[in-house]
């Protein structure tokens, strides 16, 4: 079944025909060309496709695109404003929280979602918030440091 829906992604409205069974991840990547949410497992396990959905982190592979009509979707492309990196992006660079980079967009969106809800999380709260974002390179250490740094200086 085909649905014509309006998706609000990064503040822009996109009118897009979507199939019932296509996930938000598929539509973002393949119909809108927004490729920062990554396809890692399509099973809600790795977090590489994390986007903000009404401000909260969700796996875009676990949402049907048609469900997303009327909701506000944010991806990493929306973080930098007026040519300036978001503090989380700066902090990820400063702390060397990036290695292969494949998990990075999802990590950043999870981090943004966390800080929006809890601006000064403890280390345990950061770890809990990142449990659904797998990283095989960094051992998470620098990612946690980077988020903590932003929280401590805001």
């Amino acid at each position: 079944m085909l649905h014509e829906i309006t998706l609000n992604v990064n503040g822009e409205l996109h009118i897009v025909p979507v199939k019932s069974h296509h996930t938000l991840l598929t539509v973002l990547r393949e119909q809108l060309g927004i490729t920062s949410p990554k396809r890692g497992c399509e099973n809600g396990e790795c977090g590489a496709c994390t986007v903000l959905y009404d401000g909260k982190p969700v796996n875009s592979c676990m949402v049907l695109a048609v469900e997303a009509e009327g909701h506000v979707i944010e991806t990493v492309e929306s973080l930098a404003k007026n040519g300036e990196l978001h503090p989380l992006q700066k902090s990820f660079i400063e702390h060397n929280a990036v290695q292969c980079g494949f998990c990075t967009p999802g990590m950043l969106m999870s981090a943004k979602g966390l800080l929006a809800e809890n601006p000064h999380p403890t280390e345990e709260e950061i770890k809990h918030a990142l449990a659904g974002n797998l990283c095989r390179c960094t051992g998470y250490v620098r990612i946690i440091d980077a988020i903590k740094d932003v929280a401590d200086h805001s």
Binding site: G44, G47, Y53, P57, V58, N59, M62, V63, A129
Partner: peptide, 9 residues
């Protein structure tokens, strides 16, 4: 349950 992204859905 699951993890943050799952709990949000």
């Amino acid at each position: 349950v699951g993890h943050e992204q799952v709990r949000n859905r």
